[in-house]
């Protein structure tokens, strides 16, 4: 009973230490500069938007990356799906909800294209995804003749940003992903393939179908990310020559954090908390007007420190356990 309670406490600490610790540090930085981190509704909206977009991007990246498929095309999927959905909704005068659904569907379709190309060409996923990224960037350029899409004057389509809407996106996204990966046959097969592809294939799991489904889900999520980004400013700028790749890098830190938190709870909840952690950091950058060069340095340092910790965790544990053992021996004497 006591052991059980200790386990729960340990898990709670493991789940919350990084996001709460980060929040505490960010609040401390802000108070030193005389700034309130969450001062206005706009600050909350910025926080929830960042958490929603980063969480979905992290899901999208991790679905394929956990299976060894590095997917550089997710940014271009978000770009092309939002470009097409925004253009259609502007031309037909459709409401913002339709744009969200359209973005999701288009993202899934583009993800399917990406997955089918990967499965049929059978080249390393890095190469295939780079090619697909160029293809989708070029398609977005051609579709808009390079001008991108500006719907800044369309009040309906820029009405989405809000705490409630972003919270719903987070909630629905999290529940849907947990359901898909924990409670469906696809999810079981996905996990089986992760634990040993050869055995999984030998027992009848179709790895190609599973891979395409992963790309479809990843694409759908990136469609929603594209929607969130586009409706934030009412403007979509075209990226060329791998300009869309940057989106995926926003997901690395939360993915590593999520991987750590995932030891204490569902990994997907870990990704959400990783996204929340990075959203605290992003908001602090904004509130303190931190220059982009400093932002990049700080983010890189956090990432490196975290990776150093993860790679040397056992050594640290050994050191810590050794100290405790020595201390216990001293106490006994």
């Amino acid at each position: 009973m006591k052991k059980n309670r200790m386990n729960i406490i340990k898990r709670l600490i493991g789940i919350s230490i990084i996001p709460l610790g980060t929040l505490w540090i960010m609040l401390a930085f802000c108070s030193v500069r005389g700034v309130i981190l969450f001062e206005s509704e706009g600050n909350y909206i910025a926080f929830f938007r960042a958490a929603a977009a980063v969480m979905l991007t992290t899901f999208a990246l991790s679905i394929n990356l956990n299976s060894g498929r590095f997917d550089f095309s997710i940014g271009s999927i978000s770009l092309l799906s939002s470009v097409v959905s925004a253009t259609v909704c502007m031309k037909l005068g459709l409401p913002v909800g339709v744009m969200l659904i359209l973005s999701l569907i288009l993202g899934a379709v583009l993800g399917a294209v990406s997955g089918i190309i990967y499965v049929f060409i059978q080249l390393p996923p890095i190469i295939v995804s780079l090619g697909v990224a160029l293809l989708f960037e070029g398609a977005a350029f051609a579709f808009t003749k390079g001008y991108g899409v500006s719907f800044v004057t369309n009040i309906e389509l820029i009405s989405f940003p809000g705490i409630l809407n972003y919270s719903l996106v987070i909630l629905i996204g999290l529940v849907a992903i947990i359901f898909l990966f924990e409670y469906t046959q696809f999810g079981y097969e996905y996990k089986t393939l992760l634990s040993g592809q050869k055995v999984a294939v030998n027992i009848g799991i179709k790895e190609k179908t599973n891979a395409i489904l992963c790309y479809i889900i990843s694409g759908g999520l990136m469609g929603v990310v594209g929607f969130i980004t586009a409706t934030n400013t009412g403007n979509i700028q075209i990226a060329l020559n791998f300009g869309s790749i940057g989106v995926m890098f926003t997901a690395f830190l939360p993915m590593f954090i999520g991987g750590f938190i995932g030891r204490f709870c569902n990994e997907k909840i870990g990704y959400l908390l990783g996204a929340v952690t990075t959203a605290f950091i992003s908001l602090t950058y904004a509130r303190l007007n931190v220059s982009s060069s400093v932002q990049q340095i700080v983010t890189a340092i956090i990432l490196v420190i975290f990776l150093i910790y993860l790679n040397n965790e056992n050594k640290l544990k050994q050191l810590f356990m050794f100290d405790r053992k020595v201390y216990a021996d001293k106490e006994q004497k």
Partner: peptide, 17 residues
């Protein structure tokens, strides 16, 4: 004041702010 074209979450938050 806001400068740069970072186009990341922090930058969009700065612009809105």
């Amino acid at each position: 004041y806001v400068g740069g074209y970072d186009m990341n979450d922090a930058w969009f938050a700065q612009c809105a702010q």
